[in-house]
């Protein structure tokens, strides 16, 4: 990072090659259209370039990139969400019994807990988790990306983390 701050292009290239697959995996997990996903990923690297002189801990770079990628992709997804206005007189006919504000909140809370549990995994398990959650088209089957043992190990770790007392609750701030 220091070398990149000093203007070394090859150092920046090493940072990109090391972290871009992870940034791409997280971005794909948001299910954005291809162009929006590419814009979001580009924004992540532009932000890293912008903040690089102020980032002090190289070992925290991966965590910083994960947070910024989720932030940028989450904002992009929020912009694309396009609800249809409905005449209040017709609300009962359009009411979706499966969707409710409370249900939505609980779903988001579960997702946030899962993401926190994934963040708490060691790097190997975290990589397996991202491979497992990556549902972008054109990828090789899950069984080619992760082994059965890796998946078993991952699920065991995740269950243990999610069952642990005193884990943080609530929907994560963007």
């Amino acid at each position: 990072m220091l070398a990149a701050c000093g203007g070394a292009v090859d150092a920046w290239e090493r940072i990109v090659d090391r972290h871009l697959p992870m940034v791409n995996r997280i971005a794909r997990s948001y299910g954005l259209p291809r162009q929006d996903r590419e814009d979001a990923v580009q924004t992540v690297w532009l932000r890293l370039n912008h903040h690089l002189p102020r980032l002090r801990s190289p070992h925290r770079l991966g965590a910083w990139l994960r947070r910024v990628t989720r932030d940028v992709c989450g904002r992009q997804r929020e912009k694309l969400w396009n609800p249809l206005p409905i005449d209040p007189d017709h609300l009962t006919t359009h009411a979706d019994p499966t969707s409710h504000v409370e249900d939505d909140y609980l779903r988001k809370e579960r997702e946030a807990e899962l993401h926190r549990a994934i963040d708490a995994l060691d790097p190997t398990d975290r990589r397996v988790a991202h491979h497992y959650l990556d549902d972008s088209p054109g990828l090789s089957p899950l069984s080619h990306r992760t082994t059965a043992n890796e998946r078993r190990h991952l699920f065991r770790r995740l269950r243990r983390t999610l069952a642990a007392p005193n884990r943080p609750k609530g929907v994560r701030d963007p």
Binding site: A4, C5, G6, G7, V9, W12, E13, V16, D17, L20, P21, V23, N24, E38, V41, Q42, W45, L46, L48, N49, H50, H51, P53, R54
Partner: peptide
């Protein structure tokens, strides 16, 4: 190459490091 690599490499620019965020 990993998708987005060219754009990520092109993001590198130290010319405005002295600017205030």
């Amino acid at each position: 190459p990993e998708p987005g690599r060219a754009a990520a490499l092109a993001a590198f620019d130290r010319s405005l490091d002295g600017a205030a965020p």
